[in-house]
Design a protein around this nucleic acid. Structure first.
Lengths: 242, 242
DNA sequence: TGATTATTGTACCATTTTGATACAATGGTA
DNA sequence: TACCATTGTATCAAAATGGTACAATAATCA
């Protein structure tokens, strides 16, 4: 979306986008020992949604995912990975689209680009919460973090897309060491364990978890961290890619 | 594609298909202790390709994959799973399309549906080789099995699609027990081990493999199989879904 | 008929990995 | 200085894995 084109003009004309294909991002962060998901709320509606968008005709798919996430949330250089394509024939609903656009003062003509069938490619985005300052785009009232057990009803099949993302994240967690994308540069073993427990949804034995992680040879021990608490200070670690 | 429409008419007009999206199937079978892949060769050309096709406007994505595989190879009720989307902006080539269609006596007008950008959703198809009798469709000279180490240069990015499929299959093999889709109803432990060794590309210790497989509790021992060889007859097993 | 041979099913043992508990060290508080 | 909560690590049993051995068996051959 070029800067000198108004949002209204942009969506009321047929944009130069790849038809039929959208991208939706399941954007996860970790804060206060809780996994959080980033959701948009469309202006003047009750519709919550995953941040998503469309692919420019001259743009690689992976680049599009990065750009879309940035345009809709302000987040840059995020770890993104595609995990599934959602292609039920009735997964979308024209009336919802009309309401969303109307909320932004945009009228949709009957032949509008958006009113065709779309499949959506799901990406999960893993974010260092401490660095991320999400901000809503022009279509949205808000762009906020939600606890996973307090996700509102989402537009279309976005709840299903979220579930599949979480399931994929769980099975990939040990395999691809993607969890570290959710933590700051440095972290304690306790924080890492809390993250794993939250994602997997089960308690782990502390000593065994520590042994396993150190055994992977992907952690560099940096220094002690004086927490101020009345106990032994934990080491702080850095992830050094496997 | 309706039966009373000729191939020529069909492709020279704009079909009622979902724009921008294609499906390509990496179709694998197992025969003579070798993994094989099913490839099409387009009529009167040197272009080899994965069997692929397009999605009808009123068709679920998963249904489309099944239909496409059947239309292009004659194979029905196949185990299919999507594994990756391929979306580089320059992954296709118009001239190749023109040649393929010309090989079938079909002229492509400049605004033909096929001459737009497409992303492709990769599915892998796992086949019981003994039941599969593939047959080429109207666009293809041949529809044949190839050894994995003798795959010709394929159209577009189809070699890359194949590689990603094999990689996915390897990592999923233990997780989802998908290997059994490549074997007949009943099989010996030796056949099962050969399959695993072929997919993983490494030798396994016979006794340990047997212990592991029996330990999964997913095999039913049927009967002894007299092979005619001068040695102890192996049992025959059936897969009983986990 | 009985020795021979290749392959199968399983037992066995050593090594590694995992699960669970214990304990000394430490940074603070009372 | 006693006490407390948490951390890093040791320890030990149980389970999983890697590797070898061996008896059973279905044929062949002398």
């Amino acid at each position: 979306m070029t800067k000198n084109t108004s949002l209204k003009e942009y969506w009321e004309n047929k944009p130069r986008l790849l038809p039929s294909v959208s991208i939706d991002c399941v954007t996860l962060g970790f804060h206060n020992n809780q996994l959080k998901i980033l959701l948009l709320k469309y202006k003047n509606t009750d519709y919550y949604a995953l941040p998503g968008g469309f692919i420019n005709l001259d743009e690689d798919l992976e680049d599009a995912a990065q750009r879309i996430l940035e345009e809709r949330t302000g987040l840059r250089n995020i770890y993104l990975e595609q995990f599934h394509v959602f292609g039920s024939k009735n997964r979308r609903n024209d009336e919802t689209h009309r309401q969303i656009m109307a909320g932004c003062g945009i009228e949709m003509k009957p032949n509008n680009f958006l009113l065709n069938r779309f499949i959506s490619i799901g990406y999960y985005a893993l974010i260092d919460f401490s660095k991320a300052i999400p901000s809503p785009d022009e279509l949205s009232d808000s762009c906020d973090w939600y606890d996973l057990d307090k996700i509102p009803t989402l537009m279309f099949d976005h709840n299903e897309i979220f579930s599949k993302a979480l399931e994929t994240l769980r099975t990939m967690l040990d395999d691809k060491l993607i969890g570290f994308n959710l933590l700051p540069e440095t972290f304690t073993m306790n924080e890492l364990q809390n993250l794993y427990e939250t994602i997997l949804g089960e308690k782990l034995v502390r000593s065994n978890f520590q042994r396993k992680m150190l055994g992977l040879g992907i952690l560099e021990r940096i220094e002690k961290k004086m927490t101020g608490a009345a106990n032994k200070a934990p080491y702080v670690y850095k992830f050094i890619g496997g």
